[in-house]
Amino acid sequence: MKVKDGSEVVLMLAGCSAWAAVNLFRGFTSASVPLIPLFVLLGLCVNSLLFPILFCCSLVGLISTALIPWVVLVSGLLACTAGRTMKIRVTGFISVAATLWLIPVSLSIPVVILAAALVFISNHRLRYSLLPAGFIVSAIFFGLPNSLITQPAVAGSTIAEGILTYSIPELNTLRPEVLLPAPCDGPWAVWVAIEAGGVRDSIPMLAIRLGEDMLVLPSGTDTLCFTMVPGDTLAITLLRDFRPFNHSVIHATAGGERL
């Protein structure tokens, strides 16, 4: 989208106005602050090939507050790598830096070091190879920037004619724990069928907790039965952290009958 000189300011202001409207109507959240450097970046890139991706990222950021760290960091790293001018790369770095406080410090270090290095490297071929290299080194030696979700998921449940059915989301390194609360009335016999996999060893992979009891299981298929009363919560937890070339995943189904 080529525009006349100076028009990029209009784009920045339009984005910042939208940001202000979002905060006015949805309530202010500090997580949305990194959107401002993103809009500045967008204005600077209005005539470049980065514009389509940055533009889509800005739209996603306006729609969803939870996705802001992802879209701003991706946009920032993209600008640092593929930005042709120092102005674009510096603004990209500011976008990255403005978001880093949202992710754990230990994991943000590789990202910020890489972004800073990219700003000052003028050889574009070197810059182009540095981002994949940074990703590979980070994935193998430091791990990946981790989930911002701290709360475990809660399984949905339905009761139809005395039969209880849980719908359990997939568990992976991003969402490692799910809670299955007992219905608020009467004792229930509950079964849980588990399929765990995506790893290349047989050391313990998941834990199932009910009150004081805990069961640790390796990958594979298992079906377990429990008795639950109001107030009980069954927790299924993936014990594996991120490791490259592993896709740890647990698929679970559960149901029960009133006793």
């Binding site: 991706i53 992802w70 960091l73 991706v74 593929a82 981002l131 990703f135 980070s138 981790n146 989930s147």
Partner: peptide, 27 residues
């Protein structure tokens, strides 16, 4: 394929940061 480099870098950065949000890997 002038658009190619931004796509490659956006994908690489996205894969690096996918764990920041449940929808990160889909994006």
């Amino acid at each position: 394929i002038r658009w190619f480099a931004p796509v490659v870098f956006a994908f690489t950065a996205g894969a690096w940061l996918w764990m920041l949000h449940p929808g990160g890997w889909i994006l």
